[in-house]
Design a binder for these strands. Structure first.
Lengths: 137, 137, 137, 137
DNA sequence: GTGGTCTAGACCACC
DNA sequence: GTGGTCTAGACCACG
């Protein structure tokens, strides 16, 4: 599937899964009504303990992104995309705000920061597969 | 002093202190040769366990930002600013990269992201004290 | 028919069916000697796996509410109404007891509780079809 | 402590803990700012696996009833009582509504139901310790 | 087959 | 000491 989990990242694996599912919903890889892979299946595929997957799915259920269908599996809610997009927006916004805060607090000038931003953006835009590998805090 | 510690933040308190000391060095609030408040003093001021302060100072010593002066306390190294600036740069860069990764993975367009960035920048530029309050992961 | 099944409810579907059959017997919608819809028929009507219907009917047989008639289907036993009424009574009693327990444990006064009870009762009494939609645990 | 957990109940233990903590907040046994017993401690006292306790506490954190204080333990939020009272109210209301629904659907008359309610209420009112033992669904 | 709960025991970071 | 995460393996109810 489309998951890219790093067990050594300081953000816990179950949370990485939660985030990646939400992003997949936002960008259309996972559509409303679609089934997500079963706990056991994904657990094998990612070589991760089923409990960890289950916890991620449960969190997604509480966030009303997934619906458990008795004896059949977990399904993406039809209205999930709204919530996920909102979540993505506030997530990105928050991170940007953080970068900004650190930059200014550290005396970095607005021009420097903008330049850094644009250069990173250029890097990404020129890559074919825009999937990041390591996400350290 | 200039510390703004949130005990319920998910970044640990000692790390918040480390980061804020480094930023203060970068932006000139703390200059080489200057003494940093004593563990006991800061511990009282922030109502934080002295061990926590001590650990932060210890880390800063290992990062060669502070120097222990026998019987007098901790002093900012004269060459600290170089290291701190470098640290700040990679810190900000890393955060920007993360925002970018999440944005693109979630299907946000480059234009949207740039707009968001500029709007946040405008917000901050117009404020007097650019110190952020909550830093959620 | 008169079934109102919610697959996402936390009480299992087969149990919802059992309960609703019993209530139908109690209130006279299903009379002794009457045939109950066939597993296949009901399965189609409710868009539910036949196994689930079968399991419900089996339970009802064990509870001596239904009788299997060779080659014809399932029939409501003539003495079912007694048992169903008894079951209904203890079911309602149990639920009332639970509400009471939670209310008192949570410091709700007897007066508050009685008021709540009467107001709910008034709500219902004024409605034509007293069939509830969601039954959360 | 004040917990009364039944491992054979069909509501899971972690959820029993969640409910009982909330009720304790509502009725004043647990006040804002107060620490709840540590995971390990409660785990020993109730002879329940620490993971189960931890899960309950995490749920309570998500429900903003508890706050984790780094390295010190879990504390009742000052504003918890509002949420808990609200939760209790809707919980009790929901149960009452359910009793009512079952009663009416089963053809029980309003008078019968009210009589049952008042008699249960009388039972409880006359008891010294209004703590229920078994809570079957 | 599915998810849900629980146990036992381990390791980590924080204070 | 505290909570947080993860693993391994078990059992259950549901469809």
């Amino acid at each position: 599937m489309f998951f890219d989990i790093d067990p050594n990242d300081d953000v816990p694996m179950y949370e990485q899964i939660v985030r990646q599912v939400k992003l997949a919903v936002t960008n259309g890889l996972l559509q409303g009504g679609q089934m997500v892979p079963s706990v056991r299946h994904l657990s094998k595929e990612l070589a991760i303990n089923p409990n960890t997957i289950a916890r991620a799915y449960q969190d997604l259920q509480e966030d009303r992104v997934l619906d458990a269908v008795r004896g059949r599996g977990m399904m993406v809610r039809k209205d999930a995309i709204k919530r996920c997009t909102k979540a993505r927006n506030s997530m990105v916004e928050e991170t940007v705000r953080r970068a900004l805060g650190d930059a200014l607090a550290g005396g970095m000038s607005v021009e420097e920061l903008r330049k850094l931003f644009e250069s990173e953006l250029a890097n990404r835009a020129s890559q074919s597969l825009p999937r990041r590998k390591h996400q350290t805090r």
